[in-house]
Structure formats: C-alpha cells, structure tokens
Deep mutational scan, measured.
Amino acid sequence: ENVVSAPMPGKVLRVLVRVGDRVRVGQGLLVLEAMKMENEIPSPRDGVVKRILVKEGEIVDTGQPKIELG
C-alpha cells in the first residue's frame, strides 16, 4: 500500500511529516478531526514520504488519498 487514504471524512488539522521523511509503521502521519474528535492517522508500513496530497485545514472524504509512501 503506497497511498494512505482517509478512513473517515473530516478536516486535516495537522500534517506531522514532510516529503523525504522516513516513517515507521504506526508512526503518526497527520491529525484528522472527525465528529469533534482528533484522530492521528498512522503509517501502514515503513517507508519514505514521497508526496503529501492534502493541506492543513482541508476537508477530506472517506477513501481520499492523503499521503504517498515510497
């Protein structure tokens, strides 16, 4: 899985990584606000952040790609 998608609709509060960052499985990639709760979205695997496809403040839909890992 190279693309991390939104598990639920919500607002991107914070992006916790930058392009080029090495990430580990379970590491937080971003914080999504859904139903007035903050949810940290974890990396599904070890890898390197290739692209960030969302911006802080953006509203995302379920299944929308957010971060691409290499």
Rank of each mutant, 00 (worst) to 15 (best):
E1C: 15
E1M: 14
E1W: 15
E1G: 13
E1Y: 14
N2P: 07
V3Y: 14
V3L: 12
V4K: 04
S5Q: 09
S5H: 13
S5P: 07
A6N: 03
A6I: 09
M8E: 05
P9K: 12
P9L: 08
P9W: 12
G10D: 01
G10W: 09
G10T: 05
G10R: 03
V12Y: 00
V12H: 00
V12L: 03
V12C: 06
L13Q: 04
R14A: 08
R14C: 10
R14P: 02
R14I: 08
R14D: 03
V15A: 00
V15H: 03
L16W: 02
L16D: 02
V17D: 02
V17L: 02
R18G: 09
R18V: 10
R18A: 12
R18Q: 12
R18I: 09
R18K: 14
R18D: 08
V19D: 03
V19P: 08
G20E: 04
G20D: 04
D21I: 08
D21H: 06
R22S: 11
R22W: 14
R22I: 13
R22P: 10
V23T: 02
R24A: 09
R24D: 06
V25D: 04
G26V: 04
Q27T: 08
Q27H: 05
Q27R: 03
G28S: 13
G28Y: 09
G28E: 04
L29V: 07
L29S: 00
L29C: 04
L29P: 00
L29Q: 00
L30M: 10
L30D: 00
L30W: 05
L30C: 04
L30Q: 00
L30R: 00
V31S: 03
V31C: 05
L32P: 00
E33H: 09
E33D: 08
E33W: 15
E33R: 08
E33M: 12
A34Q: 09
A34G: 09
M35S: 11
K36W: 11
K36R: 11
M37Y: 08
M37S: 10
M37A: 10
E38F: 10
E38H: 11
E38S: 09
E38Y: 10
N39T: 14
N39Y: 15
N39S: 11
E40C: 15
E40R: 09
E40I: 15
P42F: 12
P42D: 05
P42K: 14
S43G: 02
S43A: 11
S43I: 01
S43L: 02
S43R: 01
S43Y: 02
S43K: 00
R45L: 12
R45W: 14
R45M: 14
D46S: 10
G47M: 03
G47A: 09
G47L: 03
V48Q: 07
V49Q: 00
V49D: 02
V49T: 00
V49G: 01
K50Q: 10
K50A: 10
K50C: 14
R51T: 10
R51I: 07
R51G: 07
I52V: 10
L53G: 04
L53H: 08
L53Q: 03
V54F: 02
V54M: 02
V54A: 05
V54H: 01
V54G: 02
K55H: 11
K55C: 11
E56L: 10
E56S: 08
E56Y: 06
E56A: 11
E56W: 08
G57L: 06
G57A: 04
G57W: 06
E58C: 07
E58W: 09
E58N: 05
E58M: 10
E58R: 02
E58S: 08
E58P: 02
I59K: 09
I59T: 11
V60F: 04
V60A: 03
V60E: 03
V60T: 11
D61C: 14
D61S: 14
T62C: 12
T62Q: 13
T62F: 12
G63W: 09
Q64A: 09
Q64I: 07
Q64L: 05
Q64P: 03
Q64E: 06
P65R: 08
P65F: 07
P65N: 07
K66S: 15
K66Q: 15
I67K: 01
I67A: 02
I67N: 01
I67T: 02
I67P: 01
E68L: 15
E68Q: 09
G70F: 15
G70P: 02
G70W: 15
